Computed example of a mutant assay.
Amino acid sequence: MSPLPVDWEAKYRQGTTFWQRPDSNPALAGWLADGTLRPGRILLPGAGQGAEPLDLAKAGFDVTVVDIAPSAVAFQQGRIGPFGGHVLLADLFAWEPDAPFDAVYDQTCLCALSPALWDAYAARLARWVRPGGVLAVLFMQTNGEGGPPFHCDLGRMRELFPADSWTWPAPLPAPVAHPSGLSEQPAALMRLSA
């Protein structure tokens, strides 16, 4: 199963990746400051050319990035390789880690996937985060049709990450403005025991 019939490599080479921020999402700084994310093994699926892998590596995390675009992989290898980070070129729907992670940071991967793939992706996330671990995710709020990025309706997100498997923060933090004019809803979900 391939993530999307989108040529992500072409998007990076053409510079048509408007969803990427020049710096890390402000939510990341908050999660680091309040201890929601603590140094350990962390996965960043579909990180593209984002700033978060480097910021997490500098903060002492054992960072793993998995991306399907060769230029994104090369970019991240150049940035986090000196910190001992792991950067893999792989299809997330074919890849499995050797062991679950302490945390997963999903900046834009979920919203880049067709909603038809969300259930399969959520099942993978449930396997990739250890019990007691954290899924730090930003749900894109486009309030529109089509994508990517696709609108991550919070009702649908609660179905994907149900209360019998994940603890949701109450209340949710305030949405974060995105440079594109959209917004993202941060949520740090704790994985319950399987």
Rank of each mutant, 00 (worst) to 15 (best):
P3M: 06
P5A: 10
D7V: 11
D7T: 10
W8Q: 11
Y12C: 00
G15R: 02
G15Y: 05
F18A: 15
R21A: 06
D23V: 02
A29T: 08
G30V: 13
W31V: 09
L32I: 12
L37N: 09
L37S: 05
P39Q: 00
G40R: 02
R41G: 11
G50F: 09
P53R: 08
L54G: 04
D55M: 03
A59N: 03
F61L: 03
T64W: 02
S71V: 12
A72D: 09
Q76G: 12
L89E: 12
D91Q: 13
W95R: 09
A99M: 08
D102H: 11
A103V: 11
Q107K: 07
S114I: 02
P115K: 14
A116S: 15
A120Q: 09
A120V: 00
A123H: 11
R127V: 14
R127H: 15
V129W: 14
V129F: 13
R130K: 15
V134S: 09
N143T: 00
G147F: 07
R158T: 13
L160A: 05
F161C: 09
P162N: 10
D164I: 06
W166Q: 09
P169Y: 05
P175T: 11
P175E: 04
L182Y: 14
L189F: 14
R191A: 14
S193K: 12
